[in-house]
Structure formats: structure tokens, C-alpha cells
Design a binder for these strands. Structure first.
Lengths: 108, 108
DNA sequence: TTGATAGTTCGAAATTTTTCGAATTATAAA
DNA sequence: TTTATAATTCGAAAAATTTCGAACTATCAA
């Protein structure tokens, strides 16, 4: 079993999070997850990009604290760390929603 | 008189804004302005950086839509485009405040 | 056990960003 | 007019990021 490195809430840093979001591919992945929850790599709405490049972007998102993986068989399912992000940077998640923001309920 | 290029509210783009904020020097400038309003270059809390480098960072912040200049004599005073940013990305400004966020009143 | 699938890691090339000093513009003050 | 100050622009060098294919790990299914 592999150990995964995720920053704690206290370790999250706004500059790193912005740097992670400052790339169009990564922004798209994050907005895709913000809109519709958990997805594996093939569910991200990105095209014309090799799988190693996609892995690289996923790593940056994970290390910034934006996303977390869940391993199920061969697949890695990713989701936004909604509650953690909301507690550390209130309002951030809301900013990332593309549509129907009124349908999104923030965590308690 | 020089014409300055500022993106309109509609032209503002979240990815570009995040990219602009994803650098520690630029984040510091923006948080400095968010905390205390208008400042010229010498008022930014950045050190060990040449003036041409500082100009480069200011340009990126301006072109992303985060800041606007006001020319007075030799000096260029910069401020956050608070109202414009709040109308385009509600909550963004609040995220950038380092201290005393409760004392900050968002524009109408 | 073999083969297929999902994804990561490695190393190198391509591209972009950051940085600087020198030259330049614009204003103000002597 | 000359000098000083505030800041930008211009190249070019240095540093960081993005990208890819190949090799690898792990799981599942035949």
C-alpha cells in the first residue's frame, strides 16, 4: 500500500493554491470536480494531453491541497477537498464553480 | 499622456488572476494593497528585487485586472480594483486579506 | 501465469517565466 | 537648462515549468 502525501489544513498556502489554479488545464480539472464531485483521470474534461502530463498536473493539485485521491482497484478517484478548503479559505470553492452556484451547498 | 491597458470586468479571467497571484512577490504586493489601500512601488513590502523586476510583476498584476494605476507627478500609485473584482468574482478580495478581515467593508 | 488497464515516475527537450542591468520616458526641482 | 527621482521598456541570461515517451507499479480478468 502506498502512502500519499497531502498537506494538512494548516500547511495549505494561498500562493501555492493560486499557482496550482493558474494553469488552464488544472483550472479545468478543478472546475470539473467542483461542478460534479468525484472523477477519475479519464473523467477530466481535458484533451490532447499525454497521461504523464496529466499525472504531473494532478500531483501539483494534490500537493497544493486542492484535491485528494481515493484508490479503488486500478482506478484513482479524485475529489476536491471541499470541507478542508472551506475551513482554511472560506469562499474559495464557491469562486471555482462554473455554473449553477446556487445548487452548491457548502459543508457545515 | 500615456494610454494604459486595463482589462474590462468582462475580460477578467480567473485562471489569469490565479496565475498572477501564484507568485510570492505578487501575492505580497496584492495583500499589501488589500490591507491598506493605495501605494506606490516604494511602498510595497518587497525586498531584494530590482526595479525592472518589480515593474514586470506590476505589469502582470495590472494585465490580469487585479490592480490599477493612478499617475500623480513622478509617482504611480497602485490600488486593487476592489469593486470590479468583487462584481466579477465575489469573495475574492476577502480571501486576500491577511488580517482584520472584519474591518474590511466590501463595495456595494 | 499472462495480458490488459489505470496510473505514476523518470529523464530529457521545449517553452515560459523570472530576473537583471542598461537605456529610456516623464515629471519635478534647482 | 541641468540634474534628480520614479518608473517602464528592452534584451539577454538564468531558472522554473510543461510536455512527452518509455519504463515501471499495481490491480484485475482470462
Amino acid at each position: 500500500m502506498k502512502t500519499l502525501i497531502l498537506p494538512s489544513i494548516a500547511e495549505m498556502n494561498l500562493t501555492s493554491i493560486c499557482a496550482a489554479l493558474g494553469d488552464p488545464i488544472r483550472m479545468k480539472i478543478v472546475q470539473c470536480l467542483a461542478d460534479s464531485g468525484e472523477k477519475n483521470c479519464s473523467g477530466f474534461e481535458v484533451e490532447h494531453i499525454s497521461k504523464s502530463t496529466l499525472s504531473h498536473h494532478i500531483k501539483i493539485l494534490r500537493e497544493s491541497g486542492l484535491i485528494q485521491p481515493r484508490f479503488q482497484g486500478k482506478e484513482h478517484f479524485y475529489s476536491l477537498r471541499t470541507a478542508d478548503l472551506e475551513s482554511r479559505f472560506p469562499g474559495l470553492i464557491h469562486l471555482l464553480l462554473r455554473e449553477k452556484p446556487e445548487s452548491f451547498v457548502l459543508p457545515e
